[in-house]
Design a protein around this nucleic acid. Structure first.
Length: 281
DNA sequence: CAATACACCTGTCAGC
DNA sequence: TGCTGACAGGTGTATT
């Protein structure tokens, strides 16, 4: 479940179902799932044993659960197809189960399931409350720490296109391919618009669009085109019905009726309205 | 330094 | 029916 709204849906599920509980055992079923945990699977499992999960935190698309004891956390990134599921301990093992965590209370497992294995989990120290491996990730636009003036300054200093900048997690985190296209559609900006030509008011408008579309998506439980994108209980979100650009090739723009076009940019799809979002000269 | 191309995976679907 | 190629919500690393 990848972009910010979908990850936030998962964070809320974790806060409800695993925070406050004590881990009994962790089992790594696929080494690739912990490839960023350099000490390896045995150390990962040993270090988790007996630790309590204190809270559920998120920055952009990264999740972490601070642990009792030392200043460290269980961190997760869902990649393209990762899921964190809460399931009864006796329920059948999922086909793509990568890491299984069991609890002292005998209650539901926390399972990391990931078809494509682009996601990962690891243990990491906390630096200023944030996992050390994501110190290079910028705050997301819902955080107190997000500095709009700083974002605007860095954006204008770039020599690249606006969509590439929106997807740059070191500039602003949490935005992915769907919500980048949706926010650009709302702000009537073409994906190729050079960052340095944007005025400060237009940048503010774009940021408002990013926050608006992500907040709306969160209210609908996120965007789910298929069963890969589900909350901790396996349920889909409904925001796909509200998308204005993404995935709507040849369908009429809701503002002007012009068919939405699909173009390839950065080796992935970009959807936009040819009339509302004029390409730069 | 900054910007870009590519690799990393499994699965589904359209077209032949 | 296969088979092939395109495509899928992301990001770390290597290369310019």
């Amino acid at each position: 479940m990848p972009e910010l709204p979908e990850v936030e849906v998962v964070r809320r599920g974790l806060a409800q179902w695993v925070v406050g509980r004590q881990l009994a055992a962790a089992e790594v079923l696929h080494p690739r799932a912990i490839r960023r945990h350099l000490p390896g699977a045995d150390e990962f499992a040993e270090r988790l044993k007996g630790r309590a999960l204190l809270s559920a935190e998120r920055r952009g698309k990264y999740l972490w659960l601070p642990l009792s004891g030392d200043e460290e956390a269980l961190m997760a990134h869902l990649g393209m197809s990762g899921q964190l599921l809460i399931v009864e301990p006796d329920s059948p093992l999922e086909k793509h189960l990568r890491v299984r965590m069991r609890f002292e209370d005998g209650g539901p497992d926390l399972r990391f399931v990931d078809q494509r294995t682009f996601g990962h989990v690891m243990l990491s120290s906390l630096v200023g409350g944030v996992p050390e491996p994501i110190s290079h990730i910028a705050p997301d636009p819902f955080e107190e720490a997000f500095d709009e003036a700083e974002f605007a300054r860095r954006l204008k200093a770039k020599r690249t296109e606006i969509k590439r900048a929106l997807l740059d997690q070191s500039l602003i985190s949490g935005v992915g391919n769907i919500y980048a296209d949706e926010a650009l559609w709302i702000a009537k900006l073409h994906w190729a618009r050079p960052t340095w030509t944007l005025t400060r008011p237009k940048i503010t408008e774009l940021l408002t669009a990013v926050r608006t579309v992500m907040a709306a998506a969160l209210q609908q439980g996120g965007t789910s085109f298929d069963s890969l994108y589900v909350n901790v209980n396996g349920e889909s979100g409904y925001f796909d019905r509200s998308l204005e650009a993404y995935g709507r090739r040849d369908l009429p723009c809701s503002r002007c009726g012009t068919p939405i076009r699909r173009e390839v940019f950065m080796n992935r799809s970009s959807y936009s309205c040819p009339r509302c979002q004029r390409p730069p000269r």
